[in-house]
């Protein structure tokens, strides 16, 4: 895009600056719209799972429900508890929201359609997602209240635990793709199985890793069945208890942006991103963005499905699953995958 602005006669720095800002807006604005629609879609799906009607009053089919909620929240009063640590209390939701947007910079939407096509794309995603915990921890501490604090402690332990196994799972993907660059990872998935199916998840050795990644991504975004940070029967609303108005809305937007990000990562890392599922020429006529959005929505449906049907874990079960099952399993698969690649692709050194 920089070249396009340079063709208007702008110097490189200005063209780069304008192109970057335009790129950010081009991702962030549709993302916010997507979050609003996805919240509506998810409420409709839960309603269907529970044989209820769901939001169907505001606008046609209730489509405008999220916007009505947004307007309501914006008109509410921002309440700051008198004992709260004011600065951190206000910064915390902003951090959650910003971090949720930042990771989208390296997501490839089509061949070459990336805001930041960096060498260490996947590491960048890991780095940004590890920042996400600060919004929660800061909120829990700054609220100066018991339930948010418990919730913050839980969130920190949970996110750190599952990041470890996510790291090992991603190492398997990186080993197979041979690169950290997100766009290259997608390209490496072309014809992954017998040159026909596009996607690492079709490879028998990587399919279990995808299952682990799907479950870990639910734990990482603190969704049911792992939503112990906001378990309403124990902690009221967890770290969000003291928040109201736009600060509360920022948490909601950030949470759903994170969920969408994890769904997109599932699609990009394991199911071929913007590639069609089958390596067949006519399918390439459909734009890559459409494939990516379709795959993302399938994973979002799985997330909603799980949230509607699976009961919440106990905290010790959660920790056990992360440390005693996922960690050894993913570690074994790192060894298996690298061993397999040494035998088949690189050859064993004499």
């Amino acid at each position: 895009m920089t070249e396009f602005f340079q063709s208007w006669g702008l110097p490189y720095e200005w063209a780069w600056g304008i192109a970057t800002v335009a790129g950010i807006l081009l991702i962030a604005l549709p993302l916010m719209l997507a979050v609003a629609m996805v919240i509506y879609a998810e409420r409709r799906m839960w309603a269907a799972f529970a044989l209820r009607r769901g939001p169907n009053v505001v606008g046609p089919f209730g489509l405008l429900q999220s916007f009505a909620d947004g307007l309501k929240v914006m008109l509410q009063e921002t309440i700051i508890p008198s004992a709260a640590n004011k600065g951190i209390f206000l910064i915390a939701p902003i951090i959650t929201f910003t971090v949720a947007l930042m990771a989208w910079a390296v997501i490839p939407f089509n061949s070459g359609a990336v805001l930041a096509d960096i060498n260490v794309g996947l590491l960048y995603v890991l780095a940004i997602s590890s920042l996400g915990v600060y919004g929660v921890v800061m909120a829990g501490w700054a609220s100066n209240s018991k339930y948010p604090f418990f919730s913050a402690m839980r969130a920190a332990a949970q996110m750190i635990s599952y990041e470890v196994s996510i790291g090992f799972i991603l190492i398997c993907v990186v080993l197979w793709a041979g690169t950290f660059n997100m766009n290259e990872i997608v390209k490496a998935q072309q014809g992954a199985l017998f040159g026909v199916l596009n996607g690492f998840a079709f490879i028998p050795l990587l399919f279990p890793m995808w299952v682990l990644f799907l479950i870990s991504s639910m734990a990482e975004t603190a969704r049911t069945p792992f939503d112990l940070t906001e378990a309403e029967s124990e902690l009221v609303a967890g770290y969000q208890t003291e928040y109201s108005s736009m600060a509360f809305a920022l948490y909601w937007l950030g949470e759903y942006a994170n969920v969408l990000l994890m769904c997109t990562l599932n699609a990009v890392l394991f199911w071929g991103g913007w590639l069609p599922p089958v390596d067949w020429a006519p399918l390439y006529l459909v734009p890559g963005v459409v494939w990516l959005l379709l795959k993302t929505f399938v994973f979002f449906f799985i997330f909603a499905w799980v949230k509607a049907t699976v009961p919440r874990f106990r905290y010790d079960q959660l920790m056990r699953l992360g440390w005693k099952i996922f960690l050894p399993l993913s570690l074994i698969f790192v060894v298996l995958v690298s061993g397999w690649l040494m035998f088949t692709r690189y050859g064993v050194a004499a």
Binding site: I118, N119, V120, L123, Y124, L126, A127, I128, S130, L131, V133, Y134, V137, W141, F149, A152, M153, A156, I160, E163
Partner: peptide
């Protein structure tokens, strides 16, 4: 040194500082 930069964020910000914060809180 983008690799070092990412490691700095993942290791220090993502893990070490969280534990610091834990203890201090």
């Amino acid at each position: 040194a983008e690799f070092i930069a990412m490691l700095l964020v993942i290791v220090y910000v993502g893990a070490v500082a969280v534990l610091f914060l834990f203890v201090v809180m």
